[in-house]
């Protein structure tokens, strides 16, 4: 049976994402694991994460999971979520600069402290927390059944800035238009939390479970 490995590397609480995958795929198909063999054997891999980038990268390097994620990114459907999305880029501004995995060219930047709503003087708070719109920028199998502009639940202070628009699958307005979803070949990565985004979030996870990795 097709299996889904959720990589557990000590960054944040994986209970919610595991429950959401169990809900859409069935309990026996979902595995939360840090074991390399189990991740290699899985048909598809979820790379989650919450916390600080320096801790994230240090933990991936210590466990050797960084190499395994690079390998996965070349070979099978992979879903990055939140910090697991940001870690795919070349480097992050967080913790005074942290080198990341370099799977998608670009940087991770912090929202400016004086962020204002577009066209107004309203100050925007950081973290960007709550339900915001995800405007699809290119067709993708993971959007099936999800209208462009649907709202998903975000909580983050840094955002991905891919070097090329070709990697931007969706954008979200928060003072600036930032890349809320990025993709490259068999890799799809979201800044928001699909596991906390009710119907549309579950639809996205369900689409991932059925995805063959072709863009």
């Amino acid at each position: 049976m097709a299996s889904i490995a959720i990589i557990d590397y000590g960054m944040g609480n994986l209970h919610s994402i595991a429950k959401a995958f169990e809900h859409v795929a069935g309990k026996d198909r979902v595995l939360v694991t840090s074991e390399h063999a189990a991740i290699r054997a899985a048909d598809r891999v979820v790379f989650p994460g919450v916390g600080a980038m320096r801790d994230c990268m240090a933990e991936l390097q210590r466990s050797g999971l960084d190499q395994l994620i690079l390998e996965t990114a070349r070979s099978k459907p992979m879903l990055g979520v939140c910090l697991g999305m940001q870690a795919l880029l070349d480097a992050s501004e967080e913790n005074r600069g942290t080198d990341c995995l370099g799977i998608i060219p670009g940087q991770v930047l912090r929202f400016p402290a004086d962020l204002k709503e577009a066209g107004s003087d309203t100050r925007l708070k950081i973290p960007h927390m709550g339900w915001n719109q995800v405007e699809q920028q290119q067709p993708h199998p993971l959007w099936r059944g999800i209208p462009s502009g649907s709202r998903f639940y975000f909580v983050h202070s840094y955002y991905a800035a891919p070097r090329e628009n070709a990697y931007v699958a969706a954008t979200t307005p928060y003072g600036i238009e930032f890349a809320s979803v990025i993709e490259r070949d068999n890799v799809f990565a979201v800044q928001f939390h699909p596991e906390k985004s009710q119907h549309e979030g579950l639809a996205l996870l369900s689409n991932f479970v059925g995805w063959d990795g072709e863009p």
Partner: peptide
């Protein structure tokens, strides 16, 4: 359009 105000 943008971030929604939340009801909890």
């Amino acid at each position: 359009m943008g971030l929604a105000k939340r009801i909890i």
